[in-house]
Simulated scan of single mutants.
Amino acid sequence: MRDLVEATWFSRAVLMVIVANALVLGVETSIADPTVDLWLRRVDTVMLWIFVVELCLRIFAHGRKFFTDPWSIFDLLVVGIALVPASVDSLSALRALRILRALRVVNAVPSMKRVVNGLVAAVPGMGSVGALLMLVLYVSAVIATKLFRDIAPGYFGNLGTTLFSLFQVMTGEAWPDIADAVMAEMPGAWIFFVLFILIVSFAVLNLFIAVIVSGMESLEEELVEHDKEDDASNAALLTEIRAIRTELATLRAERDGVPSHLDTSAGGAN
């Protein structure tokens, strides 16, 4: 069973079903014909039970190890959400999350899995950068509120409004309108906006990319080191096997030589 669920053809077949199911769910949102919609729902149900059977086979093949793999738990949760009865009003909204099954492609494609693992490895560093970003935003919001509260109350009337306005400036969304509203009364306000964009958009936000790239590089280095260790252990194993074969050949030669020696000695004695 383990050979079956780990076979290449089996993984590719599951991947094809995942992609087809994602397409079916997408088409289902655009079909107004009740008959076609009914058939699409039936196809979706068949694919869902294919996923259920696949998970049962994997659980049977791997046993407890299945529940120690985060990706396997993710697959189990995603498929389990789709099994929630639509008649349950409090949980019917979860049916809309059926499209999450398309995310199982990540588990089925090793290259995508490595990318996600790199992102997960970068989470601690991203937390530090996020804290730095929040600190810069908070300090900038306090300064902007004190400077521009009376000039543009719609953007900087209070701390909450200022935080949202600065978030717009940080993302580059409509920031010229915000700056123009302030600079109409305070021409020197451009200094604040230019410095804020340089610090936040070009420095702090790029740190997120740097941390993610660093995390992925670290993961790749670990994989390379692991491959080197495997190669070294395989080479040592081959050396030991060759040594054992040499010893066996020596023992066989000695064993084959002992009877002839005894026969010769016995013949001479006779």
Rank of each mutant, 00 (worst) to 15 (best):
R2M: 06
E6S: 12
R12E: 13
A13V: 04
V14L: 09
L15K: 04
L15Q: 03
L15S: 05
M16N: 08
A20S: 10
N21E: 13
L23H: 05
G26V: 04
I31V: 15
L38A: 15
T45M: 14
E54M: 11
L55K: 01
R58T: 00
I59T: 00
I59F: 00
I59Q: 01
A61Q: 02
H62V: 00
G63C: 00
R64D: 04
T68N: 10
W71I: 09
W71D: 05
S72M: 10
F74W: 12
L77H: 01
A82W: 05
L83E: 01
S87A: 03
D89T: 07
A96R: 14
L97D: 05
L100S: 04
R104Q: 14
P110D: 03
K113A: 06
N117P: 00
A121K: 04
A121I: 06
V123N: 14
M126P: 03
M126T: 03
G127W: 05
G127D: 02
G127N: 09
S128D: 02
L133A: 11
M134W: 10
V136Y: 12
Y138I: 10
A141C: 09
V142R: 10
K146D: 15
F148Q: 04
I151G: 00
P153G: 10
P153E: 11
G154C: 02
L159N: 09
S165Q: 03
F167Q: 09
F167N: 13
T171I: 14
E173G: 01
A174N: 12
A174W: 02
A174R: 14
A179D: 01
D180N: 11
V182I: 11
V182K: 11
V182F: 11
A184V: 05
G188F: 03
A189Q: 05
W190D: 12
F192S: 09
F192Q: 07
F192T: 12
F192V: 09
F192E: 10
F193H: 11
V194T: 14
F196T: 02
I197R: 14
I197W: 08
I199P: 09
L207A: 10
F208T: 04
F208W: 04
I209Y: 01
V213G: 08
S214W: 09
G215S: 05
G215W: 07
G215R: 06
E217A: 14
E217Y: 04
E221I: 08
E222H: 07
L223W: 13
V224M: 02
E225F: 00
D227C: 01
D230S: 03
L237R: 15
A243K: 15
I244L: 14
E247D: 12
A249R: 15
A249Q: 15
A249H: 11
T250F: 15
R255K: 13
G257R: 10
S260F: 07
S260I: 07
A266Q: 13
G267C: 08
A269K: 05
